[in-house]
Protein backbone atom coordinates (compact mmCIF):
# COMPACT_ATOMS: atom_id res chain seq x y z
CA UNK A 1 0.00 0.00 0.00
CA UNK A 2 2.78 2.41 0.78
CA UNK A 3 4.48 3.51 -2.40
CA UNK A 4 7.45 5.77 -2.28
CA UNK A 5 6.79 9.50 -2.70
CA UNK A 6 8.39 9.65 -6.14
CA UNK A 7 6.09 6.98 -7.55
CA UNK A 8 3.25 9.53 -7.79
CA UNK A 9 5.29 11.29 -10.46
CA UNK A 10 6.01 8.27 -12.68
CA UNK A 11 2.74 8.29 -14.66
CA UNK A 12 2.46 12.09 -15.19
CA UNK A 13 6.15 12.45 -16.07
CA UNK A 14 5.95 9.49 -18.48
CA UNK A 15 2.91 11.08 -20.17
CA UNK A 16 4.63 14.46 -20.43
CA UNK A 17 7.88 12.99 -21.81
CA UNK A 18 6.01 10.81 -24.34
CA UNK A 19 3.73 13.68 -25.35
CA UNK A 20 6.67 16.05 -25.72
CA UNK A 21 8.40 13.59 -28.07
CA UNK A 22 5.19 13.39 -30.13
CA UNK A 23 4.94 17.22 -30.07
CA UNK A 24 8.52 17.39 -31.38
CA UNK A 25 7.61 15.00 -34.21
CA UNK A 26 4.50 17.07 -34.96
CA UNK A 27 6.69 20.19 -35.03
CA UNK A 28 9.05 18.58 -37.55
CA UNK A 29 6.30 17.20 -39.78
CA UNK A 30 3.37 19.59 -39.37
CA UNK A 31 4.64 22.96 -38.15
CA UNK A 32 5.12 24.73 -34.82
CA UNK A 33 1.51 25.81 -34.20
CA UNK A 34 0.28 22.20 -34.25
CA UNK A 35 3.25 21.18 -32.10
CA UNK A 36 2.27 23.83 -29.53
CA UNK A 37 -1.30 22.49 -29.39
CA UNK A 38 0.05 18.95 -28.91
CA UNK A 39 2.34 20.15 -26.12
CA UNK A 40 -0.52 21.94 -24.33
CA UNK A 41 -2.73 18.82 -24.56
CA UNK A 42 0.19 16.79 -23.19
CA UNK A 43 0.62 19.12 -20.20
CA UNK A 44 -3.12 19.03 -19.45
CA UNK A 45 -3.05 15.21 -19.60
CA UNK A 46 0.03 15.15 -17.34
CA UNK A 47 -1.71 17.36 -14.76
CA UNK A 48 -4.80 15.14 -15.04
CA UNK A 49 -2.72 12.03 -14.33
CA UNK A 50 -1.05 13.75 -11.37
CA UNK A 51 -4.44 14.67 -9.87
CA UNK A 52 -5.61 11.09 -10.49
CA UNK A 53 -2.72 9.70 -8.42
CA UNK A 54 -4.11 11.54 -5.35
CA UNK A 55 -7.36 9.56 -5.53
CA UNK A 56 -7.84 6.51 -3.31
CA UNK A 57 -9.72 4.65 -6.04
CA UNK A 58 -8.14 1.57 -7.60
CA UNK A 59 -7.08 3.58 -10.64
CA UNK A 60 -5.58 6.33 -8.49
CA UNK A 61 -3.61 3.95 -6.29
CA UNK A 62 -2.34 1.98 -9.31
CA UNK A 63 -1.15 5.12 -11.08
CA UNK A 64 0.16 6.49 -7.80
CA UNK A 65 2.34 3.42 -7.17
CA UNK A 66 0.46 2.48 -3.96
CA UNK A 67 -1.37 -0.60 -5.24
CA UNK A 68 -1.92 -3.59 -2.97
CA UNK A 69 -2.04 -7.21 -4.21
CA UNK A 70 -5.67 -7.08 -5.44
CA UNK A 71 -5.00 -3.83 -7.26
CA UNK A 72 -1.91 -5.40 -8.87
CA UNK A 73 -4.22 -8.17 -10.09
CA UNK A 74 -6.64 -5.54 -11.45
CA UNK A 75 -3.68 -3.91 -13.22
CA UNK A 76 -2.57 -7.26 -14.71
CA UNK A 77 -6.08 -8.12 -15.92
CA UNK A 78 -6.49 -4.66 -17.44
CA UNK A 79 -3.08 -4.97 -19.15
CA UNK A 80 -3.95 -8.42 -20.55
CA UNK A 81 -7.31 -7.20 -21.87
CA UNK A 82 -5.71 -4.06 -23.34
CA UNK A 83 -3.12 -6.25 -25.13
CA UNK A 84 -5.87 -8.40 -26.66
CA UNK A 85 -7.81 -5.30 -27.76
CA UNK A 86 -4.65 -3.74 -29.21
CA UNK A 87 -3.73 -6.89 -31.15
CA UNK A 88 -7.31 -7.18 -32.40
CA UNK A 89 -7.27 -3.56 -33.55
CA UNK A 90 -3.91 -4.10 -35.28
CA UNK A 91 -5.36 -7.16 -37.05
CA UNK A 92 -8.45 -5.24 -38.23
CA UNK A 93 -6.28 -2.31 -39.40
CA UNK A 94 -3.97 -4.71 -41.27
CA UNK A 95 -6.94 -6.39 -43.01
CA UNK A 96 -8.45 -3.03 -44.03
CA UNK A 97 -5.17 -1.55 -45.30
CA UNK A 98 -4.33 -4.71 -47.25
CA UNK A 99 -7.81 -4.68 -48.83
CA UNK A 100 -7.36 -1.00 -49.74
CA UNK A 101 -3.94 -1.83 -51.23
CA UNK A 102 -2.44 0.69 -48.79
CA UNK A 103 0.78 0.61 -46.76
CA UNK A 104 0.19 -1.88 -43.89
CA UNK A 105 3.61 -2.25 -42.24
CA UNK A 106 2.60 -0.23 -39.14
CA UNK A 107 -0.16 -2.69 -38.18
CA UNK A 108 2.17 -5.55 -39.06
CA UNK A 109 4.86 -4.21 -36.71
CA UNK A 110 2.41 -3.63 -33.83
CA UNK A 111 0.85 -7.09 -34.23
CA UNK A 112 4.18 -8.89 -34.61
CA UNK A 113 5.92 -7.10 -31.73
CA UNK A 114 2.90 -7.64 -29.46
CA UNK A 115 2.63 -11.33 -30.36
CA UNK A 116 6.35 -12.05 -30.00
CA UNK A 117 6.56 -10.07 -26.74
CA UNK A 118 3.63 -12.11 -25.38
CA UNK A 119 5.34 -15.43 -26.21
CA UNK A 120 8.68 -14.23 -24.80
CA UNK A 121 6.98 -13.09 -21.59
CA UNK A 122 5.13 -16.41 -21.25
CA UNK A 123 8.47 -18.22 -21.51
CA UNK A 124 10.21 -15.76 -19.17
CA UNK A 125 7.56 -15.69 -16.42
CA UNK A 126 6.48 -19.33 -16.69
CA UNK A 127 8.32 -22.28 -15.17
CA UNK A 128 9.74 -25.04 -17.35
CA UNK A 129 9.74 -28.79 -16.72
CA UNK A 130 13.47 -29.21 -16.05
CA UNK A 131 12.91 -30.44 -12.51
CA UNK A 132 10.83 -33.43 -13.56
CA UNK A 133 13.63 -35.80 -12.43
CA UNK A 134 12.75 -34.73 -8.89
CA UNK A 135 9.11 -35.45 -9.47
CA UNK A 136 7.84 -37.65 -6.67
CA UNK A 137 7.32 -40.84 -8.69
CA UNK A 138 10.66 -40.70 -10.51
CA UNK A 139 12.51 -39.63 -7.39
CA UNK A 140 11.03 -42.55 -5.44
CA UNK A 141 11.98 -44.96 -8.22
CA UNK A 142 15.55 -43.56 -8.28
CA UNK A 143 15.77 -43.86 -4.50
CA UNK A 144 14.53 -47.49 -4.57
CA UNK A 145 17.10 -48.42 -7.24
CA UNK A 146 19.87 -46.67 -5.28
CA UNK A 147 18.97 -48.50 -2.06
CA UNK A 148 18.79 -51.84 -3.89
CA UNK A 149 22.24 -51.22 -5.39
CA UNK A 150 23.69 -50.27 -2.00
CA UNK A 151 22.32 -53.38 -0.30
CA UNK A 152 23.62 -55.56 -3.14
CA UNK A 153 27.12 -54.04 -2.79
CA UNK A 154 27.06 -54.54 0.96
CA UNK A 155 25.95 -58.16 0.47
CA UNK A 156 28.72 -58.79 -2.10
CA UNK A 157 31.34 -57.40 0.31
Amino acid sequence: MKGNKGSRWYAPVTVIIGGSIIALAVGIGHGSSKALITQIITLVLGIGYFLLTRSNSDVGTIYGGRADERQHLVYLRASATALRVMLGAAFVCAVITVALNDNYWQSDVIGSVGGVAFLVCLAAYGDDDDDRAHDSEEAMRDETVRKADESRWEHDE
Binding site: M1, S57, E69, R70
Partner: peptide, 22 residues
Protein backbone atom coordinates in the same frame (compact mmCIF):
# COMPACT_ATOMS: atom_id res chain seq x y z
CA UNK B 1 -3.42 -4.96 7.25
CA UNK B 2 -1.66 -2.53 4.92
CA UNK B 3 -4.17 -2.91 2.09
CA UNK B 4 -6.79 -0.64 0.56
CA UNK B 5 -10.34 -0.37 1.92
CA UNK B 6 -11.61 -1.63 -1.44
CA UNK B 7 -9.61 -4.82 -0.94
CA UNK B 8 -11.18 -5.40 2.48
CA UNK B 9 -14.62 -4.85 0.90
CA UNK B 10 -13.76 -7.26 -1.95
CA UNK B 11 -12.60 -9.99 0.47
CA UNK B 12 -15.63 -9.56 2.73
CA UNK B 13 -18.04 -9.75 -0.16
CA UNK B 14 -16.29 -12.84 -1.54
CA UNK B 15 -15.16 -11.18 -4.77
CA UNK B 16 -11.48 -11.67 -4.00
CA UNK B 17 -9.44 -14.38 -2.30
CA UNK B 18 -6.29 -12.97 -0.68
CA UNK B 19 -2.84 -14.39 -1.33
CA UNK B 20 -1.40 -16.81 1.20
CA UNK B 21 0.78 -14.13 2.88
CA UNK B 22 -2.20 -11.78 3.23
Amino acid sequence: LGVSRQTVIAIESGRYSPSLPL
